[in-house]
């Protein structure tokens, strides 16, 4: 498994990186942690002529919690997310999710930006970002724009990011309510058979004041379950409302048959995983 030839670029500023992308056009690919791209290159399923490595751009690596908002630089690794005490306090679901991604070595290399930008339906962070209602900062030579995670994913490996843009930062509100990321997988290192990210906040009256649900690897994009989230909100969390929420989510997923099993199984597993995530999140709310 030997990759094809390419030229390597390691710009030290965002502008330099964007300029390179602009100059090199379709022949260039951005590389972050590389754990999705390099295996594809080794299989020669990806054969970029230029790699633009973002590792030297120090602006892209940070975790900032300020005024109820968390911003994370795209080149922040999964290991850094896991190790951040600040993040563990302000959004513990991020650590819970990151720990279920791949394995220790890959988490040292894999970045949050790469995970969300690649558009791989198997990646875990996209659903989490939808659950958190995160916004992605996209930079191009012409300037910046913001796209909500819930509007970012178009199809497998197709996103709202233009090829000449770089996803630089992820911003989402502090979330200290109940949370859970439940993932069924065959083994460590596997993508999800089904996974669910759930945030639930318990209001002053004991009912659910805020709910957000998103699912991983159950369609060609992550699935934000808007109806189910709304239905749970302002309701009491009980067996009936959970069942209704699960049912509503299952109606909008569209898993495919693969080595993890047929779609019918995944649908069933999704329901179980989701229910467990809701139970778990509510118990922590």
């Amino acid at each position: 498994m030997i990759p094809g030839r390419f030229d390597y670029h390691q710009p030290d500023s965002l502008t330099a990186a964007l300029t390179l992308l602009n100059d090199l056009g379709d022949d260039a690919r951005v590389i972050a942690g590389g754990h999705s791209l390099i295996p594809m290159m080794k299989l020669r399923l990806a054969m970029p002529e230029h790699l633009v490595d973002l590792k030297a751009i120090s602006d892209l690596k940070h975790i900032t919690v300020k005024d109820g908002s968390i911003s994370i630089g795209a080149m922040t690794t999964q290991a850094e997310l896991i190790g951040s005490a600040e993040l563990a306090l302000s959004a513990p679901i991020v650590k819970e999710t990151a720990l279920q991604i791949a394995d220790p070595q890959i988490r040292y290399q894999g970045t949050i930006g790469g995970n969300v930008a690649n558009g791989d339906p198997g990646n875990d962070m996209p659903a989490l970002m939808q659950c958190l209602d995160a916004e992605f900062q996209l930079s191009g030579l012409d300037g910046q724009r913001t796209v909500k995670a819930r509007e970012f994913y178009e199809a497998a490996y197709f996103t709202a990011r233009d090829d000449l843009e770089i996803l630089t930062e992820i911003v989402f509100p502090v979330c200290t309510g109940g949370y859970a990321y439940e993932k069924q997988k065959r083994k460590i290192g596997d993508y999800a058979t089904a996974a669910a990210a759930v945030l639930l906040t318990r209001g002053a009256d004991g009912s659910c004041s805020h709910a957000s649900i998103a699912l991983t690897n159950l369609a060609d994009t992550p699935i934000y379950c808007e109806d189910a989230s709304k239905a749970l909100m302002n309701s009491g969390i009980d067996d009936a409302s959970i069942a209704a929420a699960v049912k509503s989510c299952l109606e909008i997923i569209d898993p495919v048959d693969d080595n993890r099993g047929p779609a019918a199984f995944k649908k069933h597993a999704a329901g179980i995983v989701l229910k467990r995530a809701i139970d778990n999140a509510w118990s922590r709310a």
Binding site: M1, H35, P39, K42, K55, P104, Q105, Y108, Q109
Partner: peptide, 29 residues
């Protein structure tokens, strides 16, 4: 394995455990 599953190629780079089959040497400059 060459697909970053087995870890036989693990080395330490700047205090991180890394699968050296899934990083270009030039990136370790």
């Amino acid at each position: 394995c060459e697909t970053s599953h087995c870890g036989a190629c693990t080395v330490e780079i700047d205090g991180r455990s890394v699968k050296s089959c899934t990083i270009f040497a030039v990136q370790a400059q």
